[in-house]
Design a protein around this nucleic acid. Structure first.
Length: 518
DNA sequence: ATAGGGTTAG
């Protein structure tokens, strides 16, 4: 999943058993509906729970709604079992709001009801709300069990809320819930997505059992952190543990190779996958190969690779090439690729922004204006850049040129001080990316107020000396911020971990783990 | 008898 999820504001902090009279109920939904109409008079609350479980696993909202109506007629919707099953069904059918409404009116809520509604929010990527529900549940005195832990750890992973995740991890350790495989996996996932790959690895090693998901998580975790060697080692460790190498693990290894431009290794794994392991490569793998070739500067080969590997209709693969055209300043190919993408997906915001940035880099201001007009005509708007940082039990959110934060004066002052300090050791604002925010006016100070710079300044004020600063961002970090953050890591002697839309940048002593290519 | 949980490219 791309790390695009954002946060909203300052908060925080079945199956069917074929026994008895249920036999044969699940032949098909149509048959079910008919049968329901015939037999519904005889249903008790257990029947409802079983049928709703079926609707949930089949994501059959049509049937689910009908069962709901019948349950209302019989006044069974307030039964804690039926109610929880309804919450779960609506959650799984992507109707978090309905799930929450049913949950709200339940007179008796147990840990299952709470877990089901939290899960419904996770499904919708409303991780902040899910986490808040967990806190509410604790206030009500309902004790979490292993199911709850794995769900709420997932919310933390989605928010990259390391502090909450850590606290929950400590509880899971104390209560022993961490021994359950899904909880262990959720912990590995949470640490990895929150920027603490070392802790993810620690948990992974201490897990009493591992399954293919544990292995996939650790391989892709290393990959996201740009630790290609470790990803490959984990992959081979996986093989030696007699775990079948999976489709997903290969995605991890290939993306690790792509990040470091290890062309030979990448092709070696692609061949191994097809010829020795018998896993059929999919779009994900081919896209990794495209970015691998791009990373090595072999753009024309990358283009040929897309055309000859059945992914010529895959926007992600083309966009990977487009980004690379911008990085390598190959504007002719870039234009061709942008046209290609817009033919496939005329409203693709990212493509317009990249195109405009390419024009800006080439000082083609006429082109920039043209793209802006085109965007307006097409009615596409750039997604605003948002960065956030967790300090204490609160998440603080910054938008580019945000002046909404109550401590904005102090933050600006700190930032100006930092900019002066890094200018003294060679920082020159990089105007290429002034138009990163294409909707905005072309003012110099835009660079200075990119959301990640604000978040770092805030982090420096509010975290203990020498502590690592963890920042999350919904878009990819821009060139100028990347340079600035590297220099800030020198003058402040701080480690800065920033997770952007696609990967982690671990910045320390003036160097970044991405090797300045992303 | 009956309800709830984990992984995938950019």
């Amino acid at each position: 999943m791309p790390f695009r999820n954002s946060v909203s504001g300052n908060l925080l902090m079945s199956g069917y058993t074929s026994s008895g009279h249920h036999r044969g109920m699940l032949d098909s939904s149509v048959a079910m509906v008919r049968r329901m109409a015939r037999e519904v008079e005889q249903w008790d609350h257990v029947s409802y729970v079983v049928v709703l479980g079926h609707c949930a696993s089949m994501k059959d909202l049509v049937l689910g709604d009908q069962v709901h109506v019948q349950a209302l007629k019989k006044r069974l919707e307030l039964n804690v079992y039926v109610g929880s099953a309804l919450v779960d069904m609506y959650g799984k059918c992507d109707r978090a709001h309905d799930a929450h409404c049913i949950f709200e009116v339940l007179p008796e809520k147990n840990v299952v009801s709470w877990t089901a509604v939290m899960n419904a929010y996770n499904q919708k990527e409303l991780f902040e709300d899910a986490l808040q529900l967990f806190l509410d549940m604790e206030m009500e005195g309902v004790r979490p069990n292993e199911f709850t832990y794995s769900v709420v750890l997932n919310s933390c992973a989605g928010l990259a809320a390391l502090r909450n995740g850590n606290a929950l991890g400590a509880c899971a350790l104390k209560t022993g819930h961490w021994r359950y495989l899904p909880v262990g996996n959720a912990l590995v996932n949470m640490y990895s997505k929150s920027g603490s790959i070392k802790d993810a690895w620690k948990i992974f090693l201490s897990m009493p059992y591992r399954d293919v998901i544990s292995w996939n998580l650790i391989v892709t975790g290393f990959a996201h952190h740009g630790l290609a060697k470790e990803a490959m080692e984990a992959f081979h460790y996986m093989l030696s543990a007699a775990e079948n190498p999976s489709y997903i693990a290969f995605v991890g290894v290939l993306s690790a190779c792509a990040q470091l431009g290890l062309v030979d290794e990448g092709f070696y794994y692609l061949n191994t996958m097809m010829k020795e392991v018998g896993v059929i490569p999919g779009n994900e793998h081919y896209t990794c190969m495209v970015s691998l070739l791009c990373r090595a500067g072999r753009l024309e080969e990358a283009e040929k690779f897309i055309m000859s590997n059945c992914i010529s209709t895959d926007v992600v693969a083309w966009r990977s090439l487009l980004i690379s055209c911008q990085v390598h300043r190959n504007y002719d190919l870039g234009h061709r690729v942008a046209e290609q993408i817009l033919e496939l997906k005329p409203n693709d915001v990212g493509t317009y922004v990249l195109l405009s940035n390419m024009y800006a880099k080439a000082n083609r201001w006429d082109g920039v204006v043209k793209v802006r007009k085109l965007m307006r005509d097409m009615g596409v708007r750039k997604e605003p850049g948002v960065s956030w940082i967790q300090v204490g039990s609160e998440v603080h959110v910054f938008r580019a040129e945000d002046n909404l934060h109550p401590q904005m004066d102090q933050i600006t002052e700190k930032l100006e001080e930092l900019i002066d300090q890094i200018k003294a050791i060679g920082y020159i604002p990089n105007c290429d990316v002034v138009l990163h925010d294409i909707e905005d006016e072309q003012k110099e100070e835009h660079l200075m107020y990119h959301s990640e710079k604000l978040a770092v300044a805030f982090g420096l004020i509010h975290t203990p000396k020498g502590g690592t600063i963890h920042i999350m961002k919904n878009l990819r970090i821009c060139d100028d911020c990347h340079v600035a953050l590297k220099l800030i890591s020198i003058v402040t002697k701080r480690k800065i971990v920033i997770r952007d839309a696609v990967r982690f940048h671990c910045i320390e002593d003036g160097a970044c783990s991405c090797g300045d290519y992303w």
